[in-house]
Simulated assay, not measured.
Amino acid sequence: MLFAVAIFRHHGIPARGRGGFGAYFNAGKYEDHWVCEYWKEDEGRWALLDAQFDDVFIRNLSVGHDIHDVPHDQFLTSPDTWQRCRSGALDAELFGIEFSQMRGLWFVAGSLLRDLATLNGFEILPWDVWGAQPAINATLSDGELAFFDGVAALTTDPDANFDAMRQRFANDAGLALPHSVFNALRQRREDLFEA
């Protein structure tokens, strides 16, 4: 994803990473995933590119959509997922990582924070944990639900909410990136490096 973002930007095409969930990995489930969102100038809209896929992946997973313009029913961004789960339109237990049996609203909330960081120019790792991200299998309190509702409201349309999103990320201690994060994959704290 990051390499695709860098290539688009090198060619003067606006691009950014988006965290969310792909519907094309395990039938009936939405898997934690990242894509590149890039600006299609000729159509005046953002499109989704899944740079992870090649012909082998496409064939083995029977992917029937254009990986250069992934439909929004095949990849749901984290804020879209959060809002659909909160409204009851989708079941939060369908979202997460199947092979590790980590699923639920707590997982979507963590993805929501990583997506927010990326939208603010901090392209972190999908397994970095900090601040307000819930613990594994946590049941979220009413206050936490309201907190993440607010984050989702800002990131659903990051262009319309650009200034407010950046201010909230910079000024909220639960959202702002600290000097180090917990790498859940390596099970250790790691320092963040600015490029």
Rank of each mutant, 00 (worst) to 15 (best):
C85F: 04
R114K: 03
G17D: 05
W127T: 09
D50F: 08
F148T: 05
G20P: 08
N183L: 06
W127R: 07
D157Q: 09
A170R: 08
L48R: 07
L105N: 01
I13D: 01
G19S: 10
F21C: 02
I124S: 04
A15N: 05
L48P: 08
G44R: 03
F99V: 13
W46D: 03
D163C: 00
F147E: 01
G20N: 05
Y24M: 09
D66R: 09
T77M: 09
Q133H: 10
A146Q: 09
D115I: 06
G12E: 01
E37H: 02
S62A: 14
E98R: 15
L76V: 08
D159L: 09
E31G: 03
E123V: 06
R168S: 07
A170Y: 02
D172F: 08
D115H: 10
E31N: 01
L116N: 03
G64P: 00
A89P: 07
S62Q: 14
F162Q: 15
N183D: 15
V151R: 02
N120A: 10
L112F: 08
G88N: 05
R103N: 13
T118G: 13
E37N: 03
D163I: 10
P178R: 00
K40I: 08
W82A: 07
D149A: 02
W39N: 07
A152T: 02
A146H: 06
D66M: 04
P178Y: 00
L2A: 12
A160P: 09
D80Q: 15
M165A: 08
P126S: 14
R189P: 00
A146M: 09
I124E: 00
P71C: 08
V56N: 15
C85S: 02
V108C: 12
F107V: 11
E43W: 06
D142S: 14
S180T: 11
G12Q: 02
V129Q: 12
R186D: 14
P178H: 05
T77N: 10
N60V: 13
D50M: 01
L192T: 01
A173I: 10
Q74E: 15
Y30S: 01
Y38P: 09
L175P: 11
A4E: 10
F57I: 14
F162E: 15
W39E: 07
D73A: 05
V63T: 07
A51W: 06
A146D: 08
H10A: 14
E144N: 01
A4S: 12
F182E: 02
I124C: 10
R166L: 11
G12I: 07
A195K: 07
L175C: 11
V129G: 00
F3T: 15
K40P: 00
W34P: 00
W130S: 04
T81N: 05
G174S: 07
D191G: 12
N60I: 12
L61I: 00
S62C: 12
A135T: 11
Q74D: 13
R114G: 01
R16V: 06
D115A: 05
G96T: 02
L154Q: 01
D157T: 09
M102S: 13
K40Q: 14
G143T: 11
